Computed example of a mutant assay.
Amino acid sequence: MHRLLLNVFVLLFVFAPYSAVNAQGYPNRVIKLVVPFPPGGLIDNAARLIGPELSKELGQPVVIENKPGAGGNVAAADVAKASPDGYTLLMASAPLSISPALYKSLPYNPANIEPIAILGQLPNVLLVNPESGINTVADLVKRAKANPGKLNYASNGNGTSLHLSAEMLKNQAGIFVVHIPYRGSTFANVGLVAKEVDFMFDNLPPALGLINGNKLKPLAVTTATRNPALPNVPTMIESGYPNFEVSAWFGIAAPKGIPDSASQLLQATLEKIVGRKEMVEAISRLGATVTFMNAQRAAQFMKTDTERWRKVIDYAKIQMD
């Protein structure tokens, strides 16, 4: 009897650490990273930079799954409803902070998604046709005020950050211009090159080729500081609009309730990844700047971002179903 009890004790002693690791060790299986947009765009490209490095560091496969639709809400809903175990993550971006202010109702509760980290930011850039004779933001505003309702601007669709950036300019500059939504920024750029519209805001990366090819002229970037890709282009703040600060951003989020240990591991790992010189350079080639924010700072940033967009949305009386 004593020998039997001793054997049981030995077995428990030997296998207890193994059982604890299996119960608590994260990660021990495949992680899914959900991307809210189709392959080939900025957010997808960023995910394909981060995903393999995350896999190497964590020792588990990171599978990227594209789930486009409804301005990012399809993917957000998928992640919000997933188990909060750290094995389903969202490649988060600006729509995650815009949607709560923009939509009457959402297919998910925004409170059911929590940020893990923000990894990078990039500006929108205010663009005109080089043949327009407009060389500064002041020139554009002056022309708009002299011709109320006669100028128009393009965007990649209603409720996007590009649309809302122009509405922010309307609000702060006190101008009346007409919105012409296109089916994506590529078509909007074509419209501006063809002089169908007078100006537009675009994310910097897709606009860089046209800027460098002298097809479009940048007037200002929307971040608080100038962008290294356009060092001679002023910010909107420098152009006379001290409250005009907008940035597209990307990061990682998870279902609400992810264990602290998993969140902390992901935060530390992501900070390590984006801190590497080669990753900084790769993200820079996307037109973005590495800006690491941990979960706490990211949550505050997103809250501030939502309120910033809510003011613009209320001013412009925009609401999506």
Rank of each mutant, 00 (worst) to 15 (best):
I318N: 03
T269I: 12
D314H: 01
K104H: 15
G72M: 10
P231M: 12
G120S: 13
L219H: 00
G174K: 04
T160M: 03
A253F: 01
T304R: 12
L89C: 08
A146D: 11
A282D: 06
I211V: 14
N232Y: 11
K32E: 12
P95E: 09
E307H: 11
M293I: 07
E114Y: 04
F250Y: 11
I283S: 03
P84K: 03
N189K: 07
G209V: 13
E167H: 02
N135Y: 13
L266V: 00
A295I: 02
L265S: 06
G240Q: 08
L208C: 07
A248W: 04
N45Y: 10
P218I: 03
V312D: 05
Q172M: 15
P123Y: 02
G40V: 07
P255Q: 13
A144D: 04
A76C: 09
I252R: 00
A47I: 10
A295W: 01
K195W: 07
R310Q: 07
F176E: 15
K303T: 14
T88M: 07
E307A: 09
N73W: 11
Q300E: 15
H179K: 01
P205Q: 14
E131K: 13
L106S: 03
S155C: 04
F199D: 01
T235Q: 11
A173L: 05
L4A: 13
I252Q: 02
A82N: 02
